[in-house]
Design a protein around this nucleic acid. Structure first.
Lengths: 164, 164
DNA sequence: TATTGTTATACTCTATAACTATA
DNA sequence: TATAGTTATAGAGTATAACAATA
């Protein structure tokens, strides 16, 4: 992206009524407009950027947040289980956990029953940190609400419910 | 992803009373469920994968499709203009165009008025190819409709209209 | 000086394959 | 033999910086 603004709010103004449609803006996205994938992709980029910015001070990205949340809610899970449930490659999860373990947020405990696998737990530090991350994530969620509207956000969640 | 199914439909247990915690399937995504970003991300992955699969025979990925579509609809556009309007880095567009030009779908023409910039055009071959890509993209769009429902797709497009 | 296209670098993420240690 | 975790590699994609030609 050249600028964050360009990427975040491509062209097109909706909320403010006035549409700045002057100079170089006379370009048609045409066929792209009817494509769900294009709209979803642009929206997803906006959401991720807001998430990254909102949780910037604590240096937590969306994927890291999802890993911490799932471990927090299901202590003792194996790496395979976490990877499967989040749709992350197990190879990739290794690096994610390396980083989270170095930051003392997560610990890998060798399983007694199956010594191939690791039981994943949050550290005490990880628990308190996650609580803070969740407050910031809720703030991010409010940004989404501000951007698309409370009811639209709820409809979106309803429409996409079985993808989570 | 380990398997497409695993990524697309993670697990998700709806109503669980006495959760038999041993089987790896009794995992809660919990806090993640209320997050628009998570749902959107999973949906976006599903959409992209279906797009890539549906246009697999012609070897066109979503980004390439969006570039071809915009050039087709606005012949003579500069690289900067295309990059800005699609929210792509101009540095990245260079490589995308290199590949599309090698495939004889696009040509770069030095501008007479501003010799720094290139006017982008589809080749004759690019025009007919794009027509085919559009038919396949429409097929992909029908897959989306089948997956989430005709009305939900329309609502989604309406909700996300000003992100395109 | 500023901008367009280009090259280069670094980091994230996806997709595989292969290795090891267990089972 | 199969699986869990690991390592490695290759390709997208994102984010920057810098350079040459041109404005």
């Amino acid at each position: 992206m050249t600028t964050t603004a360009a990427q975040t709010f491509p062209r097109k103004r909706g909320a403010n009524g006035a549409t700045p449609r002057n100079d170089a803006d006379e370009i048609g996205l045409d066929a792209l407009v009817g494509h769900a994938g294009y709209a979803v992709r642009r929206f997803q980029i906006w959401i991720f950027q807001d998430f990254v910015k909102t949780l910037g001070n604590v240096d937590i990205r969306p994927t890291q947040y999802s890993v911490l949340t799932v471990i927090g809610a299901n202590p003792g899970l194996s790496q395979m289980a976490v990877a499967k449930h989040l749709g992350i490659e197990r190879a990739r999860l290794v690096h994610l956990l390396d980083s989270l373990e170095q930051r003392r947020l997560v610990k890998r405990v060798r399983s007694k029953t199956d010594r191939r696998s690791h039981a994943l737990h949050l550290t005490a530090q990880g628990e308190t940190a996650l609580a803070k991350f969740k407050r910031l994530a809720a703030e991010h969620e409010r940004h989404v609400e501000d951007r698309i509207g409370k009811e639209n956000r709820e409809q979106l969640l309803r429409i996409l419910a079985d993808f989570t």
